[in-house]
Amino acid sequence: MTVPAPRARRRTSMLGRSLPVLLIVALLAPVGLLFASTWQQTGDDRSLADSERLGVQYLRALAPLTEALVEAQSAAVAGRPVPGEPLSRAVEQAAAVDARIGGQLRSQERWAGLRAKVEALRDRSPADPEAAYTAYGEVTDLLLALHRKVRESSGLGRDPGADSFFLQDSAGQKLPEAVVAAGRLADLGALAARRPPAERLRSLMGLTGLRVSALSPAGDVVDNLRSAVDSSESTDLGANVLTPLDAYQRSVEALALYSTPSAAGTIDQGQLTAAALNSRNAARQLQPVILGELDALLTERADGLARDRWLAGGAGVAAALLLAWLAGMLIAAARRARRRAATPDAGSPAAPPPADPWQPPAPTGQPADPRTLQPVGAAHEPILAQWGPFDASR
């Protein structure tokens, strides 16, 4: 009988040995890229929200300074003593905020120039209303430029949320511009009443330009806040903003009415001054509400981004542990396969021992141990001896 020779095991190819590693890398690469992208994006958004909150803090400090400068300008133009205490207090508050966060918002240089101009104004004599109007106009221009700088450096100007963008645009740009322009409008009306008749046309042209400068941003404030309420998911925004907004809108409508020249080209200065004062008071009530709602939205966004960041980190760790477990399983399977390849199977027949080189091989087709030939009868004699002689009667 021919014994089949055992089959030789195939050696594992290089591709087979490296397949587990390639599979792990193929799974780990997209997971790692997704985790890194999510981590980076949430980190950038969180940093922007934190920076915007610093901008809100700075704008809070600039609001009293804006109001104090407008009141000081009105007093100087009217020939009254400028109240120094409100202006000094507002300057100190703004200086404290700038010393704390001005470096992060890159506003220290602009604040230093504005503060120097304000200090110079307090030493001026109120003898020349025209010169005072011009000087205060330069200072308030620097103040509005500081507002723009804070919005730009803090990231408020590129806020990604619809409701928060409308809020920051109203509190950081439109409302300060409207307050400053309304004060200038009332003060120019007071100056125009004292100018000679030959300058009446120039005064009316100036008043018309300031009227547009005051009413245009005021109207933008109203539109922005209503758009913010409509686009916001916050249920508190509308309830908190709409009441002071309605009061401000009524004051702006009165300012538009009393700043319109009559058919004779004259303006009632008393009514114009009162309307400008009412609009400033309404803005004083509205701006803290806007900044408070804006800060609440930014805080909620920052907290949500922090949660998303930790969730992304947890998902990344879980994915890494799962891939490590899978890698261990694949590596263990590869090692077992290599051990089986190196050890013969227990159930396969053993190979015959090697032949003796000095023993001549048996002829083909002939038994290896030939027996001696015997006659046919002799071969059956032992069997017949066991049964004995044959008896037919049995």
Rank of each mutant, 00 (worst) to 15 (best):
G113C: 11
R122S: 08
E92K: 08
V150G: 00
S164E: 08
G206H: 01
R339K: 14
E177D: 11
N240V: 08
G270I: 15
E52P: 01
R250I: 05
T235F: 11
G43Q: 03
L384E: 14
Q359V: 08
Y133E: 05
R200A: 12
D163F: 05
Q173K: 01
R336N: 06
V31A: 07
Q271A: 07
P375C: 09
E85A: 12
E85Y: 12
D223R: 07
W387P: 02
D345Q: 05
L225V: 03
L87D: 01
A78S: 10
A334I: 05
A218D: 02
G388P: 06
V317D: 05
L305T: 03
Q57M: 07
D369E: 15
T66H: 06
R124V: 13
T372M: 13
V25N: 04
L142I: 14
E300T: 07
V150A: 03
T266V: 09
A355Y: 13
P126F: 10
P389G: 10
L28Q: 07
G270D: 15
P354F: 14
S153H: 08
W111S: 00
E152V: 09
T260Q: 12
G365K: 08
A198T: 10
E152A: 05
R122Y: 11
S279D: 09
R17T: 09
P129Y: 07
V317A: 09
G183P: 01
R80I: 10
A362Y: 15
D230C: 02
V221T: 03
L373N: 15
S47L: 15
P370Y: 07
A283Y: 00
G102F: 02
S213R: 04
R301F: 03
G102M: 03
R200N: 08
I267C: 09
E67P: 07
P176R: 00
A282L: 10
L146D: 00
L291Q: 00
V180S: 01
T42A: 12
W325N: 10
A368N: 14
L207P: 01
A178Q: 04
P261F: 06
H147G: 01
A341G: 15
A192V: 08
S213F: 03
L65F: 09
T372S: 13
P353D: 14
L207E: 01
F35L: 10
G388D: 06
Q386L: 13
D223S: 13
L146W: 01
L142N: 10
A318G: 14
R335F: 05
G206V: 02
D391W: 11
D295C: 03
V221H: 00
A324R: 06
T66A: 06
A350E: 14
E130P: 02
